[in-house]
Design a protein around this nucleic acid. Structure first.
Length: 977
RNA sequence: GCCGGUGUGGCGAAAUGGCAGACGCACAGGACUUAAAAUCCUGGGACCGUAAAAAGUCGUGUGAGUUCGAGUCUCACCACCGGCACCA
């Protein structure tokens, strides 16, 4: 407890109103056709009750927080930042007349509970439940207006039943490139050479959106599980920072790559920050280019087919696949400059093309590479390494024989795992060619001097002839500092059939690609950095897969989905949560669970934590539905696009970032607030699942989150990120004890713009706390407060009784406000309203402070003005506002008993008009005076008054006035010579 | 290296191209108090002035530019934060 005196009895007020809201179910959001009790304030506000269809409900507003992982450490001050912002808007939108959906739940599968279980044997569910209870207590103590009736946890069986159900939809779907969407697997057309049931099954399994593959994956020894690409950061696990290694394993994958293009282009239809969209764009990593086939020149090595239809969605270009290496390039215009090829060390043709003389060297290189961690492989400024295979390829445009190398700077997992090297026009190839003395052939010339000036060899300093530079660059490109990778004019690029010479890069790209396609040597291709999503984990505390494994007559293992009526698939009870001695996932310990009576065997992997968070925003819409993951009516009402506003709803046409976008595209969650750390994990995965569900007809919008805002990180008082080791962590419980929830909420919003990074400052909390104290003292009677304080020390009365001892300030009277008071009030209404629309909470709070500072000086406080002020304050400091509102109600009677549903005040522009205004007068742009003129003053009046100002005169006397600039109601500027 | 963001008092920050620093913190002085805390009032960009004022000059990371006028627009830099990074 603070040594200083409490500003106001928030310790009584806050629990009182939290209890009241809970009992009244004040923040229940009503679904279409759900019974709305006649005595609910929502019913009274909208004059509806009973079962109301969607068309007769008020317009919806779905405002969502990223649900937290309930960690053992409890809430940190960063959580309430986003939660407060959404809560303020939820309350504001409710007051405006929207049907507001504002839910909260728990992303409760997670590693810490499992690790605790491994260590202690305590079931992770128990740990999770304890943590949820603590988080619930903390979040409820902040007075957020969540509809708790929709609370969910991803670990609840009636939740993950539907996570498993969606997995079955993914499993039983494929992406049809012809319709460009996911379709049921039953619609799959089989190629003519798929005849037997086994062939068909293999083909089908290779097309599913959830599929099994044996591929190199990130294995984390310390965590005992594989991880997705997105969970690996700088060669370490994102959780814990443990090393990860590439390891081939049989794993479940989700075919997110099929949605790469949609995930990219649909970013244009949603209102997210540029930086976030850019992160997703970069992660998806689209590049346009061409695939080109290079024939292998060396003979004698039997090369087997590269493609089999079931594994690859690439088609052969119509040439003999037996003797070609396919490369991907974004610069087909530089094909004439390709002087060697490079394969990734893991490329499957490496062993087959390597000549006997080079076999040892290649084997040695490959083994060195395989031992390196990924961190070492991607080290910055690392020297290029590589080995010649002894084999050669034929450059298809000029027939030149070029050597084939292997090097780890070519990645097996991107493109075709092989490149044509054009050292003159690619920085990496340039470095490699210089190191291994490979030829560098210039085929693009820079068409401006700048590049030459920056990269020319030192002995050419002072030269200024472009042609000399060009000659030197062509003959000795290795003398230049770097490769020319920009766009320019093609040169030295012709064969008897085609010439690119003189063409701009973009034209040359098009011409050569057309030619390659016409000759069946290559084709246009788009590549993405995005990889399929590794979807299995070797863990206990996750959703089990609804999958069993069987053996066919030939002894081949294959997988099969369990029927929907077998859901949920519950995890078995274990006493030991470690992986088995043979490295199998912990679920494999439960032999009775794994082995089914019919001889089939359960999948023992579990889903990653991201699974549950991919669709929780849909479950909120209809959280108790037992027969569907979400009901149709609820889904289309809450996620549907905007409908025309009903008359009561006040929206600011200007400055509303929420309404910037075309209403026809506005759909899904209206506002989603959370941290930026989920930019390429949760937010990409959820969009992917949503698009699959959309394609399959289960949801009505292509995107889940229309507007998304990232709250900025809160740093410690020392300006460093908060951490235990620094000892600068601020515990929300302590802040609440000392200043109360309202002050805490207000401070988090007053610190600065929501999206900015900002340091915590406890004295700043004191500041807003004092402001709330001033509000309190403005409304209550000082003497009665003294009486209450004395009564409190005796501790014989209940909290409610104690609060009732405090009376309303006698200066508050039901009288008309003066014009000045009205102007003050309406300025405040306007500012708060517009700032809420623009999510500018900090300046909205300052506007209220300005109002209060002024109202403190009023002799009498007009009831109507004080009432409206409380409405403005309510979204920010709801407990205090409700308490004071109730006092107004008990004294004056005619006030609506429900502040939550009282209609948001409108400002009257007529009251803001100034009768007299102060106009700055400048001479040559410098401020010399401020003149007072009436609002009706003409421009000529303004000029006369300005010129006659005593302060202005010395600056214009004896000079000619060349020009007079008058901005009506703004300023006067006299230009003198 | 590439992409995105941010640079304004001692600090957090405000400013449709039009009086830079609203609001808050910290600080200083005063009132109340035996005293302190709390509260209330007053003052705070820098420089130069002055007994105190008033004038005046400079000032939004740096340098140019557009404009009657730039924190705001344009160009080129610098610094910090975040993301990506041998993706052909």
């Amino acid at each position: 407890m603070s040594s200083s005196r409490r500003q106001y009895p928030f310790h009584l007020i806050e629990p009182k109103w939290q209890k009241n809201w809970d009992e009244q179910q004040s923040f229940r959001a009503f679904n279409p056709n759900e019974e709305i009790p006649a005595n609910h304030p929502f019913a009274a506000r909208h004059k509806i009750s009973g079962k109301v269809p969607a068309a007769q409900l008020p317009e919806k507003f779905y405002i969502l927080d990223m649900f937290p992982y309930p960690s053992g450490a409890g809430l940190h001050v960063g959580h309430p930042e986003g939660y407060t912002a959404t809560d303020i808007l939820a309350r504001y939108k409710r007051a405006q007349g929207f049907n507001v959906l504002h839910p909260m739940g728990w992303d409760s599968f997670g590693l810490p509970a499992e690790q605790y279980a491994v260590k202690t044997g305590q079931h992770p569910r128990l740990t999770t439940e304890q943590n949820i209870a603590n988080f619930t207590r903390q979040i409820k103590s902040l007075g957020f207006s969540y509809d708790w009736s929709r609370e969910l946890a991803t670990t609840n069986t009636d939740y993950f039943k539907w996570t498993q159900w969606i997995f079955l939809k993914l499993y039983n779907s494929w992406f049809n490139p012809k319709t460009n969407k996911a379709e049921p697997i039953e619609n799959l057309e089989y190629p003519t050479d798929c005849k037997t049931e086994i062939e068909k099954r293999n083909f089908r399994d290779s097309k599913r959106l959830a599929f099994v593959t044996e591929a190199p994956v990130w294995w984390c020894e310390q965590l005992g599980t594989v991880l997705a690409n997105e969970e690996v950061v700088d060669g370490k696990s994102e959780v814990g920072g443990f090393p990860v290694v590439r390891k081939p394993m049989r794993q479940w994958m989700l075919r997110i790559t099929a949605y790469a293009e949609k995930l990219l282009t649909d970013l244009d239809t949603i209102d997210w920050s540029d930086s976030l969209k850019e992160m997703q764009r970069n992660w998806i990593g689209r590049s346009e280019g061409a695939e080109v086939d290079f024939q292998i020149a060396s003979s004698g090595t039997g090369v087997s087919p590269v493609c089999s239809q079931s594994e690859s969605n690439l088609e052969t270009h119509g040439r003999d696949a037996h003797a070609t290496i396919r490369v991907f390039t974004t610069r087909p215009d530089t094909l004439f400059g390709a002087t060697y090829m490079v394969l990734a060390p893991e490329h499957k043709l490496v062993d087959q093309i390597t000549t006997p003389e080079q076999r040892d060297a290649v084997a040695k290189y490959k083994s060195e590479i395989s031992k390196k961690s990924d961190l070492e492989r991607t080290e910055l400024a690392k020297e290029k390494t590589g080995v010649f295979t002894g084999a050669f390829a034929i450059n298809p445009v000029n027939g030149e024989k070029i050597p084939i190398w292997i090097a780890d700077y070519v990645l097996a997992s991107y493109g075709t795992g092989a490149i044509m090297a054009v050292p003159a026009h690619d920085e990496r190839d340039f470095e490699f060619a210089k190191k291994f003395k490979l030829p560098i052939k210039v085929v693009v010339l820079p068409n401006e001097n700048k590049w030459f000036a920056e990269n020319a060899p030192s002995d050419m300093k002072g030269e200024n002839s472009v042609s000399k530079f060009e000659t030197r660059y062509y003959n000795h490109p290795e003398d230049f500092r770097s490769a020319f990778t920009g766009e320019g004019d093609a040169g030295f690029s012709k064969n008897p059939e085609i010439s690119l010479n003189g063409l701009k890069t973009s034209e040359a790209k098009k011409k050569i690609t057309d030619w390659l396609e016409s000759k069946n040597l290559g084709k246009r291709t788009i590549n993405y950095k995005l990889r399929d999503w590794l979807f299995s984990r070797q863990r206990y505390w996750g959703e089990p897969f609804p999958i069993v494994w069987k053996k066919d007559a030939a002894g081949n293992l294959y997988h099969e989905a369990l029927p929907e009526n077998s859901l949920p698939v519950l995890p078995p009870n274990l006493t030991d949560y470690k992986p088995t001695a043979t490295g199998e996932p912990p679920l494999a310990r439960a032999k009775d669970w794994v082995n089914l009576p019919d001889g089939s065997v359960r999948e023992t992997n579990t889903m990653p934590q991201w699974a549950g968070s991919c669709w929780y925003y849909l479950r909120y819409l209809d959280a108790k539905n037992n027969s569907a993951f979400v009901g149709k009516d609820a889904e289309s009402y809450w996620m549907g696009s905007v409908k025309s506003l009903n008359g009561e709803i006040v929206t600011s046409e200007t400055n509303s970032t929420i309404q910037q976008f075309n209403n026809s595209t506005k759909s899904g969650v209206d506002l989603y607030v959370g941290g930026t750390e989920h930019a390429v994990l949760h937010l990409l995965y959820a969009r992917f699942w949503h698009k699959v569900l959309f394609d399959l007809g289960y949801v009505s919008t292509p995107e889940p989150f229309f507007k998304l805002v990232n709250q900025g990180l809160i740093l410690g008082e020392d300006g460093q990120k908060m951490s235990k080791s620094r000892g600068n962590v601020v515990n929300p419980d302590d802040v609440l004890d000392e200043y109360g929830a309202d002050a805490f909420r207000l401070y988090e919003m007053f610190m600065g713009p929501l999206e900015m990074v900002k340091p915590w400052n406890t004295q700043g909390v004191e500041g807003v706390y004092r402001f709330l104290g001033r509000v309190w003292r403005l409304f209550v009677d000082e003497k009665s407060e003294t009486a209450y304080e004395q009564a409190e020390t005796t501790k014989t009365q209940s909290h409610e009784e104690l609060l009732d001892l405090i009376l309303l300030n006698g200066e508050i009277m039901d009288i008309a406000a003066t014009p000045a008071q009205l102007k003050m009030l309406h300025t405040c209404i306007k500012k708060v309203t517009e700032d809420l629309d623009g999510l500018r909470f900090n300046t909205a709070i300052s506007a209220m402070m300005v109002f209060i500072n002024d109202a403190m000086t009023w002799q009498t406080k007009p009831l109507a003005a004080m009432k409206i002020f409380l409405q403005l304050l309510a979204p920010f400091a709801p407990h205090l506002a409700e308490e004071l509102w109730a006092k107004l109600h008990s004294t004056f009677g005619q006030i609506s008993p429900s502040l939550t549903y009282a209609a948001w005040p409108k400002f009257d522009p007529a009251l803001l008009v100034e009768s007299e205004s102060e106009i700055p007068v400048q001479v040559n742009g410098k401020l010399r005076d401020v003149i007072k003129v009436s609002a009706t003053a003409t421009q000529a009046d303004l000029e006369t008054v300005a010129k006659n100002s005593e302060k202005v005169k010395p600056f214009i006397e004896g000079k000619t006035i060349k020009k007079v600039i008058i901005v009506p109601k703004k300023m006067v500027n006299l230009i003198v010579g």
